[in-house]
Simulated scan of single mutants.
Amino acid sequence: MLRPPAKHCRNCGTAVVLRLPDDGDTKTRAVCPACHLVHYDNPLNVVGTVPVWGDSGQYVLLCKRNIEP
């Protein structure tokens, strides 16, 4: 189930407008006219895990996506 697009900016609270962003995107997005934040809604899940390498405390984040970023 897809969520409706954002109505207000999560950054500054201004009402957003639906238009093509200036960054070359080809899909209509919710864009804030005040702070120019583009609100992307990605309904696809990203699966991740954080394994620990031995007792050294070093962590490695592994992620698997269905689509390229």
Rank of each mutant, 00 (worst) to 15 (best):
M1V: 10
T49G: 06
L20H: 15
K27F: 08
C9E: 09
Q58G: 03
G57A: 00
L61E: 11
P21A: 14
D55G: 01
H39G: 02
A34Q: 12
A15K: 07
V46L: 05
V52H: 12
N42M: 10
L20T: 10
D23L: 00
D22I: 11
V52S: 12
P69L: 15
R3C: 05
T49L: 02
Y59W: 07
L2E: 12
I67Q: 12
P69M: 15
G57Q: 00
P21V: 07
P4I: 15
P69K: 15
D25W: 13
K7T: 12
G54E: 07
G54S: 02
V60R: 09
G57W: 06
L44K: 05
Y40I: 03
P43S: 05
R10W: 13
C32S: 01
V38A: 02
L18H: 10
L20F: 11
V16R: 01
N42W: 07
C35A: 06
R19N: 04
V31M: 03
K64R: 11
Y59P: 11
C32F: 01
G24F: 02
R10Y: 12
T14K: 13
V38Y: 03
M1S: 07
P4L: 14
C12N: 00
D23N: 08
H36A: 03
G54N: 04
A15N: 06
R19Q: 13
P33M: 09
P21F: 11
C35Q: 12
C63W: 10
D55H: 00
C12W: 07
N11K: 08
G24L: 07
P5T: 11
Q58K: 08
R65S: 10
P69Q: 15
E68P: 13
D25S: 12
D25L: 11
H39V: 03
T28D: 03
L18M: 11
L61R: 12
T26W: 03
R29F: 03
L37V: 14
H39W: 04
Y40M: 03
N45H: 05
S56G: 01
N45E: 02
L62T: 10
P43R: 09
L37S: 13
V17G: 00
L62N: 14
I67G: 04
V50I: 08
P43I: 06
P43G: 09
A30I: 05
D23E: 02
G13S: 10
V16C: 04
E68M: 14
R10K: 11
D25F: 14
V16P: 04
P33R: 14
V17M: 02
D41N: 05
K7W: 03
V50S: 09
P21D: 12
D22N: 13
C32P: 01
P4W: 13
V31N: 09
G13D: 09
C63H: 14
